[in-house]
C-alpha cells in the first residue's frame, strides 16, 4: 500500500496523542490505536519501513511509540 499514505495516517494519529500530558500514555495510545484499527498488512509494511528506512517520514513521537511497542504491532501471523 502507498507508504506515504501510511506514514501520513500514522503521523496524524501521533498528532492527536501528542497532546496528552502523560508521555507514556501517549505512546501507548499511538501504538494501541494502530494495533486496534490497522489491518496486519498495513502494520507489517509500517514496521518494515521502520526497519529498512529508520522510520523516515514518521514524526518522532510516532517512531518512539512504534519502537517502544514493536512486538504488539506485529501481525499475529508473524509471531507464530
Amino acid at each position: 500500500m502507498d507508504m506515504q499514505n501510511l506514514l501520513h495516517m500514522a503521523n496524524k494519529i501521533g498528532s492527536f496523542f501528542a497532546s496528552m500530558p502523560d508521555h507514556e500514555e501517549a505512546l501507548q495510545g499511538i501504538s494501541g490505536h494502530i494495533h486496534s484499527f490497522w489491518a496486519p498488512r498495513m502494520r507489517s509494511q509500517l514496521l518494515a519501513h521502520v526497519d529498512t528506512r529508520n522510520g523516515e517520514g514518521l514524526t518522532p513521537i510516532v517512531l518512539e511509540a512504534i519502537l517502544a511497542n514493536r512486538d504488539s504491532l506485529k501481525p499475529q501471523s508473524e509471531l507464530k
Partner: peptide, 19 residues
Amino acid sequence: QPEPGLRIPNMFDAALDGS
C-alpha cells in the same frame, strides 16, 4: 481472524497495490 480487516479506503489502496 483476531485482527482487524481493511477499512473502505484501505481496500482502495490495497487494490491499487495489487493485494
